[in-house]
Design a protein around this nucleic acid. Structure first.
Lengths: 234, 234
DNA sequence: CGGATCGTTGACAGGTATCAATGCTGGTGG
DNA sequence: CCACCAGCATTGATACCTGTCAACGATCCG
């Protein structure tokens, strides 16, 4: 794990160039020559469930891309609880606000085992001056964040809790190639929907009894049509 | 209103250069020479209360800076109602998503009489290739949007409706130099907090009777300490 | 086996949506 | 000028939903 700096950098570039999901991440538009000109000390990390990626208000030196897994961004509340602001999934960027020289806005924590790449912000900024390709990707990410924020307000903070949960389950199920998806704990579900843990538990149990939701060994699957009819004032 | 194109452009630049709030808007970092090199056909517009600035899903050709007033960004809901996603105030940027070639994400409508500047996106993009100054400002705006989105989730979509309303009133009162501020209609307040119009009305009336809120000829003022104690589990 | 953590369920009080009716106000036309 | 109307705000009654407090069950791990 403690290789010479230059070696490490080279590994990062090599790995990044061959990364199977590179089209999803920040460097999708970079040409071969961009890579050759710049040493990118990109490091892979694996987070176990419950492990923190960064803390709110911490001075940011890295930006992270999620290669696989699920990260929650949370905001502490006055009563000791927390509110989940957003989830990050494959291809999403974490800590992008560090590019402004600003501190991280959230507490970031893995919900399940999660694979990420860590990129120092100084490298992003030097890439920015050398190629316009990166700006486009960054702008796209900002745009994505805005869109996600809208989704969370319009779907997860609006209407009755049954409808909110239906929205959340559909959201979790989408963007998975498999029909099964990771179902967060009741406390996290509550923190995403702005409801209590107990209500979240009651609703999950109810959905399961009604056959809208099936669970097994930590994974879940849904009856899409049923959930959509709940949202449509069912 | 129908001057020759070149004349119009020059007016835009002149006005923009002398704008009293330029330090707040997009071109704060631009040097004199930047201005001289580029013709910016910036146009001022005044929106009356209730007037739309753009529609959701419309192809965006402009970005707007708010010089004075209040704009609501809304998202239609299935039941015919709408949800207010965010408010824009002096110095904020509207329609920034158009810079991606994307369509507008929201319906934007003036809550009160509002003064804006309209900037074609092609000019933003040509400025981007000539000076790095603009990028910084744009990034700052994206960052602001992310922060605002967090605020809305953590304050206006969390806890009881009394606490949400207290948060909203404090938010509306802040960033006003005067103690008095514009109080939106009950329907809009409901759409911001995710509650019904009736509940919003009841709470406003209650706050007024309790002396937390004072109103007169369309303007309002608050007792800051009282509202803060409501938020702190009062 | 015991303890810790998480999920489930119950009882009840309080809050909110819903349906409905009644004030209030500014603008319009006679 | 005044009567009227349309839109908004307020208020009431009630059923439903959710938070709260509390207990119990399930599962994992030492």
């Amino acid at each position: 794990m403690k290789l010479p700096e230059i070696e490490q950098a080279w590994q990062g570039v090599e790995k990044c160039r061959r990364c199977a999901i590179r089209s999803l991440v920040l460097f999708a538009d970079l040409q071969r020559e961009d890579f050759d000109h710049i040493h990118l000390p990109i490091e892979e990390m694996e987070l176990t469930a419950g492990q923190s990626l960064y803390q709110s208000n911490q001075q940011g030196r890295y930006v992270f891309t999620i290669r696989q897994g699920l990260i929650k961004l949370t905001h502490p509340l006055a009563n000791g609880h927390y509110r989940v602001i957003r989830l990050l999934r494959q291809g999403d960027l974490a800590g992008i606000e560090a590019l402004n020289g600003a501190r991280y806005l959230h507490h970031a924590e893995a919900l399940q085992s999660t694979l990420i790449c860590r990129i120092p912000i100084e490298n992003i900024e030097s890439l920015n001056s050398n190629t316009p390709h990166l700006y486009q990707q960054l702008t796209r990410r900002w745009h994505q964040i805005q869109q996600d924020a809208d989704t969370w307000l319009a779907k997860f903070a609006q209407g009755g809790s049954r409808q909110r949960l239906a929205h959340l389950l559909l959201y979790l199920a989408e963007a998975e190639s498999q029909p099964a998806f990771f179902l967060p704990g009741r406390e996290d579900i509550g923190a995403m929907l702005g409801i209590t843990t107990e209500t979240a538990s009651r609703l999950i149990a109810d959905f399961r009894r009604s056959g809208f939701l099936h669970t097994g060994n930590g994974l879940a699957s849904i009856e899409q049509d049923s959930l959509e009819s709940i949202i449509a004032q069912g």
